[in-house]
Design a protein around this nucleic acid. Structure first.
Lengths: 344, 344
DNA sequence: ATTAGCACTCTTAAGTTTTAAGTGCTAAAT
DNA sequence: ATTTAGCACTTAAAACTTAAGAGTGCTAAT
């Protein structure tokens, strides 16, 4: 398990070259491109040992070496130098995520910007256990109400309620108040059920209109907001997908919720999680890496942004980007009690 | 320009076979699959004539025939039978577009469902000239306001305003009222400019808070909502994109706003527009067809849904789907004055 | 311990042959 | 005057063959 300095140097050179070139790396290439003070023969010997130890793989006998899952893992844990983001990327992030919008909007912006910087698809997983903070009813017309829901995680949702009967303006505030008293703290996904229960118990006089609102909420909250992915087409440019069958396969993985879900869930709440190839239990992910960031608000996880792509990934840049996003969100998410001035 | 019955039959058979198979259609295939009461030799002669007239094309001398732009056009205008949607598709549409949500949400749902039924990407173009109908201010916390904007087209937008100073609850309604009086009817994209003007002219006492709101609106309204596309990955399954370069090329077209914009704009307001290959001025679109539907609300166009893909498209099903969507929207879009019961 | 040198393996590219699809034309049949 | 059978011809795609190139592993020399 111990690698001497020369092996480390060779391993990280192979990985860094492969990350860029996507071609198996040979001993000659290493001598030419990286200033290794050994001959190609020595490097060949070392690479053979690294392969025997499981850090490198050889697609076929006359090819160079490719990093294995174990190799990438060793690189990420021990060899990788943390890169700084370029000014270009920093500006891109800051100009895109300006802090206006509710939590969900901000998370979407972040998932998108990360995807475009790293040229990989990203997935946004919203934390499902989001509780109602505040509800507000706004009249649109005689027969239409706008129901604005604000959650404790800071997400705002609009629902449309179609009224069977009209309601006088004077009653609206009373209605809002009653709803807030009864529903605040309810998980969003149970909201319409809870509302129905409220109707049964005590609010007979509003029953028709509450039914309409309940129906509106049911349809308006797309419970399936658990996931969303951005920029799938970016993968077309990756050499690993020059075979279109592989691209289709990858897209299938992306659109099958469970595959990635199961893998992501194993990530500790407080950490940036990296799952490389066969480290996932999911066999279909054996050629792919997922790097996932938990976004927190007041120490509660509100969502996850996951970068997914072939194992050949710019780990350093990916991690730098996600860490930057994480720091940005720390003083960004709107909170009830405090509201920091945004930094310039 | 006149085609006799036999030529018509042959042309439509070629097109219908090609739409399914994506392979050039030969005389033998036609005799075998379609019950044409002529020999392959006769059909060969006819196909040659159809080619000379420009309705068919031959990729190379030993291949079958492929429809030309002119051929597709003739088919669409004269030969095509209107298909009925399957119950499956109808149910899918009805279960997806339930009528809850603002105009923009409904349009997004429609663009998505159309894309999934037809297995082609769709583009949603929102009409930019949308005017403010109503504005409502809701307090989220001491230093945060939620600004809810309702447009005349029936779209609801939420913006977050970060306050420099606090505002007492009692002032909120006055503020809302003042804003409505001054801003209703303003085009959404000018809203924050108009607001700044209002501040200058008369609302000095609210000036700080109005500035904050103006800033929130500026960031919250993503003016670039002109377009959005769905389901790009569906194209990976089309045989025309088994060459990944072609797929990339197509994705590029999709993401270059102007290319499709220019073409779509030439479509008459009240019609379902079909632009086949070289009928577009845009050279890059010469192998693609766009079928575009205007969605109207109270006789005003609120958006366009465009299906785009290779010329080889199931024209009949595409048109049937869009027409169904169109009919659905007729009694769906929320309006200020009237509000029809939704059909069962 | 390192390296030059070379035989060996296997992939990829390039070139060649074969196969099969489909045509267009001619001459015969209707 | 149409229609059709039949066949020579063209071409693309598939199957095979050969050549080139990359990179290794091993041996023997440094």
């Amino acid at each position: 398990m111990k690698l001497d300095d020369r092996k480390k140097k060779i391993l990280s050179s192979v990985i860094e070259d492969y990350i860029i070139s996507a071609e198996p790396v040979g001993s000659k290439t290493l001598v030419d491109k990286y200033n290794l003070e050994y001959s190609s023969a020595t490097i060949r010997n070392e690479m053979k040992l690294l392969e025997e130890e499981g850090y490198l793989e050889q697609p076929h006998v006359s090819a160079g070496r490719v990093p294995s899952t174990k190799g990438y893992r060793y690189y990420v844990d021990n060899l990788m130098k943390e890169k700084n983001l370029s000014m270009l990327d920093i500006n891109y992030i800051n100009n895109t995520i300006t802090g206006y919008g509710d939590t969900e909007k901000l998370l979407e912006q972040a998932a998108d910007v990360v995807s475009r910087i790293l040229l990989r698809p990203t997935l946004l997983t919203l934390k499902s256990a989001d509780l109602l903070e505040h509800i507000k009813i706004v009249k649109i017309s005689e027969k239409l109400l706008l129901v604005v829901l604000m959650s404790q995680n800071g997400t705002v949702k609009d629902c449309i309620a179609k009224l069977t009967d009209t309601i006088p303006d004077s009653k609206l505030d009373e209605l809002s108040e009653v709803l807030n008293k009864n529903l605040s703290g309810t998980p969003l996904e149970n909201l319409h059920i809870a509302l129905n229960k409220v109707i049964e118990n005590e609010l007979e006089k509003f029953s028709t209109i509450l039914n309409d609102i309940s129906e509106g909420i049911k349809h308006g909250l797309n419970n399936e907001t658990k996931k969303l992915n951005a920029n799938v087409e970016s993968i077309l440019n990756l050499p690993e997908f020059s075979d279109i069958e592989k691209a289709k396969n990858f897209v299938n993985i992306l659109s099958t919720k469970d595959i990635i879900d199961n893998t992501i869930e194993s990530i500790k709440e407080d950490k940036l999680g990296i799952i490389i190839g066969s480290e996932s239990k999911e066999v279909l992910l054996k050629d792919y890496t997922i790097i996932s960031l938990n976004i927190e608000k007041e120490d509660k996880c509100v969502g996850k942004i996951s970068v997914i792509g072939p194992k050949r990934m710019d780990y350093s840049k990916t991690i730098a980007t996600l860490k930057y996003i994480n720091r940005k969100f720390k003083n960004l998410l709107p909170t009830e009690t405090k509201n920091k001035e945004r930094e310039k």
